[in-house]
Design a protein around this nucleic acid. Structure first.
Lengths: 225, 225
DNA sequence: GCAATTTAGTGCACCGGATGCCAAAATGGA
DNA sequence: TCCATTTTGGCATCCGGTGCACTAAATTGC
């Protein structure tokens, strides 16, 4: 039995770098050798290369060279090349989970969902340019589209858990799953549309998409509000 | 303006093996060297191995050995390892496109969608076992979840095209995109639920999911019909 | 000032998927 | 028999990713 390599990436943390081996996970008194760079710096260099020469045309070695670390070290900052584009997704997902949990029971399911998704995606004006680059990459480069699916799966689990609490039954049941995956679809559509267009408003797009979803498409798309 | 460099694997055929380099694409008079095996045989051997020892634990070399071809030849039958699990998806997608196009304008959007998705997924009793294996793999093995996203993207394009025709505007607009991705979500939820449970009815699950979606979730999930 | 400890970085070997290239095999037909 | 045609197969190569052993730099306590 060779048994090289199992997948076993089960251990995901809710907050960014939850005490793992990743460097740059320090705040106060720095003990051992200081980190040569930071996740941010790596991401900046990588995104820059991606924008200039394309994602698939940029090798990990190039990114590593650009920030002055070795290839091996790159993989200590990010688990994989696609992860650079996703950035601090884990933390964001945790915030979404919290918001959903804190919502009052009186508030309708879809309202909570729309409000929470919007709230976890409020970005400052300075962040929007980079966000757009990230989203365009994620939604157009096949390699990234593929990798992203795993992230979306985590997102769906969170939403399905919340929906199951509201609708009854377990998160794996059809209704919560349908709600979760449809909500994901709405969010993806909104983000992609925003990223592709020039001067749009992200929040407005997300809002529209979720209201469309809540109303249902039975009336052939004449949306209220 | 940076160039985003698309992958450019655009050349996908609608019918299985539309004259590409893939072997086994012959029907009548065989001229050159005969193909050593068929896509079906490769798929059977591969799925068998996947079921017994797991997807990630099965290498392409093992599959190739099982059907008695070389590793290199395997990649002529299937573009990639995940593609084996997806099988003849391209053909199915083509049929969906046709059905959507043929639907009468009088029929409501969501009805057409539900009916067409169900129609393209009617399987004989003998095919259900294999289908279940495929779907369980696709929806649980991370590698396959990832790869599948690219296929789903193609599916969404077809549905968005149809929705744009009904709603007006271009397929890239928010409304058609939201419809398409939400529909995809419903379909995925239905398939996954069916595959995980034992004695369920696939058609019934898809029907339920799409009706749920059409109604909208605004009323907190008390579904009609 | 000096070990011990802690943390980060590095080099190397190796795996597995995927691709391009070219030669070898197997067939039908002139 | 020789040729065109088509598939196969081996080989080299690329790239992402991982395990392992080892080195480098900093802090703490003596």
């Amino acid at each position: 039995m060779p048994k090289w390599k199992r997948d076993d990436r089960a251990g995901l943390m809710t907050t960014a770098d939850g005490g793992s081996t990743t460097p740059a996970g320090r705040d106060g008194a720095a003990r051992g050798r200081p980190a040569a760079t930071s996740r941010q710096d790596v991401a900046r260099a990588a995104l820059d290369l991606f924008a200039r020469q394309g994602y698939d045309e940029t090798t990990v070695d190039e990114i590593a060279a650009a920030v002055g670390i070795s290839r091996r070290t790159f993989f200590r900052y990010y688990e994989s090349k696609p992860d650079v584009v996703w950035g601090e997704f884990d933390a964001e997902l945790g915030r979404l989970r919290d918001r959903l949990a804190e919502a009052p029971d009186s508030e309708p399911l879809m309202d909570v969902l729309r409000r929470s998704v919007i709230a976890t995606n409020r970005f400052g004006a300075g962040e929007l340019d980079e966000l757009r680059i990230r989203i365009v990459l994620i939604s157009t480069v096949p390699t990234l589209v593929a990798h992203s699916a795993v992230r979306y799966e985590e997102w769906c689990e969170v939403v399905a858990g919340f929906a199951a609490g509201r609708l009854g039954g377990s998160p794996g049941d059809l209704a919560p799953q349908t709600v979760a995956r449809a909500a994901l679809g709405a969010a993806m559509a909104a983000f992609a549309c925003w990223a592709r267009s020039e001067g749009g408003d992200l929040v407005a797009e997300v809002d529209r998409a979720f209201r469309l979803l809540a109303t249902g498409f039975a009336d052939d798309g004449r949306d209220a509000a």
